[in-house]
């Protein structure tokens, strides 16, 4: 790709957001003067119980781990119930996918505590559970929206079931599946922040601490980082989705 095309293609956008995010995570602590304007009366104006970069790291780790597990389980379950041998489970799984969507993430989080106690564990569990639903729903929708004539042709040409899945079904459903993972990540970046209330170490820490002590500067620092992280991940997925197999139509 020429430099011109690269600039026009927006492919650089995720990098820009990522750079901004890292700069913010490393540099917010230096902006003492700026945050002092916001909170002239507080003793400290920079959240100091943990480095922002460490909080970003553990936040990202939680979300990424959850996304991997939910993607594997969600896409796997969708594949299973769209096979001939698994179709008996299709009504059950689609129902779970649609009901789960209506439960707010805070409720899932609250329910995880009595089961798993406090800390990163229950937060991860809640993230996996809650992030699973959009992925499952989209994977199902993507796999089931494929023109039956295309599948019939694939089988009729002599493709083995695994070849039909990998060469036809998954590529054709990829865009919709990626959209599901994108939604799941966006939701979970926010949900992970709430995880701070049950003892997980995330970018929600400064926000919660700010809320408790009435320190607007802390809240703002957490909010900026969470916002940038969400935007960076979203823009990354936008680029990924554009690279998913197309149908040759102008996008």
């Amino acid at each position: 790709m020429s430099r011109r095309a690269l600039l026009r293609s927006d492919a650089w956008q995720p990098l820009l957001w990522l750079a901004l995010l890292l700069t913010a995570a490393l540099g917010l602590g230096e902006l003492d003067g700026l945050f002092r304007l916001l909170e002239p009366d507080s003793r400290t104006v920079i959240y100091g119980r943990a480095a922002f970069i460490d909080l970003l790291g553990s936040h990202l780790l939680l979300v990424a781990l959850a996304a991997c597990v939910s993607s594997l389980v969600g896409v796997g379950a969708a594949i299973m119930v769209t096979r001939r041998w698994g179709e008996d489970f299709l009504p059950l799984v689609s129902q779970v996918a649609s009901i789960g969507q209506t439960i707010p993430p805070v409720a899932v989080l609250a329910l995880a505590v009595p089961a798993l106690g406090f800390g990163n564990g229950p937060t991860l569990f809640a993230l996996i559970l809650y992030g699973l639903l959009p992925i499952l729903r989209n994977s199902l929708a993507g796999l089931r929206s494929i023109d039956p004539a295309v599948l019939e042709a694939a089988r009729g040409m002599g493709m083995a079931p695994l070849q039909v899945l990998c060469q036809v079904e998954l590529p054709l459903a990829l865009n919709v599946i990626l959209a599901g993972i994108r939604t799941s990540l966006t939701i979970n970046i926010a949900t992970a922040a709430i995880g701070s209330t049950i003892g997980a170490s995330t970018l929600g820490d400064p926000v919660i601490s700010g809320l408790v002590t009435g320190n607007t500067a802390f809240i703002l620092q957490g909010a900026i980082l969470i916002g940038l992280l969400a935007v960076a991940v979203d823009s990354l997925f936008e680029q990924l989705q554009r690279r998913a197999p197309g149908t040759g139509q102008a996008k």
Partner: peptide, 11 residues
């Protein structure tokens, strides 16, 4: 094998 709606692979 050829069918009415062609079943061409759109991708």
């Amino acid at each position: 094998y050829a069918i009415q709606n062609t079943g061409l692979f759109p991708h």
